[in-house]
């Protein structure tokens, strides 16, 4: 398993980098907290509303904190051209991609766990934690989709002279199906609405498979100069 070996090496390195530098995860968590506070001002989040607003607020926070974090981890590779040591190694472009997808996925999941906790506390909505088992498939598939697209696009945009600023412009339209799926499935489950969350899970799964396959093919074109 040489293939996975390089991917794991990259994941391990990113975790170390995060422990030493504390550059992306802490910023993501901070942004999540800040956005939740802002949403509290912007929307009427009283007891009777919070359940219907929860999925929308949470996925917007996931999306934007995710963009911030994935932009940062790509910048860490671009700084000092550090990624070149991966390019000049037996690690294939595919294992490079998978390694970065895994580390982005890990940071996104940690950010989401904290965001859910913040939400439960700030909005006095413990239900979101108790219903986590049912919400889990939607959360995981959605987060995987974010990481699959975000890894490719953040690496691509950080090569331009606008840097990570360009990321949301390319990333947001493409992940619309994930945002729709994430918000809708969570809303359906939280509020016991009709409409079948299963369909959304399917759509997100198809999205993930499609983007996994295509990004795997395309990633090598963006690590060449």
């Amino acid at each position: 398993m040489k293939f996975m070996g390089s991917a794991i090496a990259i994941l391990r390195k990113d975790i170390l980098l995060e422990l030493r530098g504390k550059e992306s995860l802490s910023l993501m968590l901070f942004l999540s907290l800040l956005l939740l506070v802002i949403f509290n001002f912007a929307l009427d989040t009283g007891k009777e509303n919070v359940s219907s607003l929860a999925s929308g607020i949470l996925w917007v926070v996931f999306t934007f904190s995710g963009i911030l974090g994935m932009g940062r981890t790509s910048m860490a590779e671009r700084d000092e051209d550090a990624y070149l040591s991966i390019v000049f190694s037996p690690a294939s472009a595919e294992s490079f991609y998978i390694g970065k997808v895994l580390s982005n996925l890990l940071f996104l999941v940690i950010m989401e766990i904290f965001t859910l906790l913040f939400f439960a506390v700030l909005y006095d909505f413990e239900k979101i934690i108790s219903m986590l088992p049912q919400l889990l498939p939607g959360l995981l598939l959605g987060t995987l989709g974010f990481s699959l697209v975000g890894t490719l696009f953040s690496f691509l945009t950080t090569a331009s002279r606008y840097g990570e600023v360009l990321l949301p412009f390319l990333y947001l339209p493409v992940v619309v199906p994930i945002i729709l799926g994430g918000v809708s499935s969570m809303d359906i489950i939280l509020n016991a609405k009709a409409g079948g969350a299963g369909k959304w899970i399917q759509i997100m799964a198809v999205f993930d498979i499609l983007y996994f396959a295509v990004s795997l093919l395309l990633f090598r074109y963006i690590i060449e100069e």
Binding site: S6, K13, L17, R20, G21, A76, D79, E80, Y83, S85
Partner: peptide, 19 residues
């Protein structure tokens, strides 16, 4: 330099070794 600035000398070397 293609080094990860936040990592230590040893960690940088180790990363290459693992790759």
């Amino acid at each position: 330099t293609s080094l990860y600035n936040a990592l230590t000398v040893m960690e940088n070397m180790d990363f290459i070794r693992r790759l």
